[in-house]
Amino acid sequence: MTGEALLEVQGLSKFFDGVKALDDFSSVVNRHEIVGLIGPNGAGKTTLFNILTGFLAPDSGQVFFKGTSLVGCPPHGIASLGVSRTFQDLRLIHRLSVLDNLLLSFRDQAGESLGGLFFRWPQCRHQENENTSLALSLLESVGLKEKDGEPTGDLSYGQQKLLSLLCGLASGAELLLLDEPVAGIAPVMIAQLLSVIRGLPNKGRTVMLIEHNIEAVMAICHRVIFMDAGIKVSEGDPVTVRNDPRVIAAYLD
């Protein structure tokens, strides 16, 4: 079910005031794969995501997405290439409706340019209608359809996590980077989120996720990377990594 390499990371390093946040990190994510990134706090997982999405510049190393170098590319440029991310601290526009947050996520909207607004208005309307029905069917697929008009701030924390995942789907991104998708939410919601994520490869998506919930990682990831102190310690299928003495040691510490 997995295919050729979608994301290639080569020798990424990042220092913060002399502290190594990421040390010579290399890895490959293949198409239609779900890769889990685990490790203690401060292991450099979110730093890696921030570099991959252009919010941080690495001190050295290279990142290639479908062969295109991402280093030096601004965040919006990387997002436009088809790399979407969620945030650990959940960024959504609370004052906008659930539906508006989703509609915001679509790429290449004619209605977001002046040329489209003033010279191709029918096309804008048409696209907006299509996006709206797509967004509503996404909401329906997770049982949030009745919430479409509500301010996003009124959703529960779990529902917001679900919505931010949907935003990534709406963007049409091929690679979804999920930062702690199931942390801090009710068990019922965890099950729902995991089933959505598990189904993504069949919809042509590739996932890399950070998660502290080991059960969740074991349940859905095809491959797991264990990081500690900015270094990739162990990599392989979930069972192998879980039984790696270095991983056990780190978690028992």
Binding site: T53, F55, P74, P75, H76, G77, A79, S80, S84, R85, F87, R91, L92, I93, H94, R95, L96, L104, S105, R107, E112, C167, S171
Partner: peptide
């Protein structure tokens, strides 16, 4: 409006 509320989020969506 997205930029007004959260620039980082807007950028992460490709704006």
């Amino acid at each position: 409006k997205a930029i007004r509320e959260d620039e980082v989020f807007a950028a992460s969506l490709g704006k």
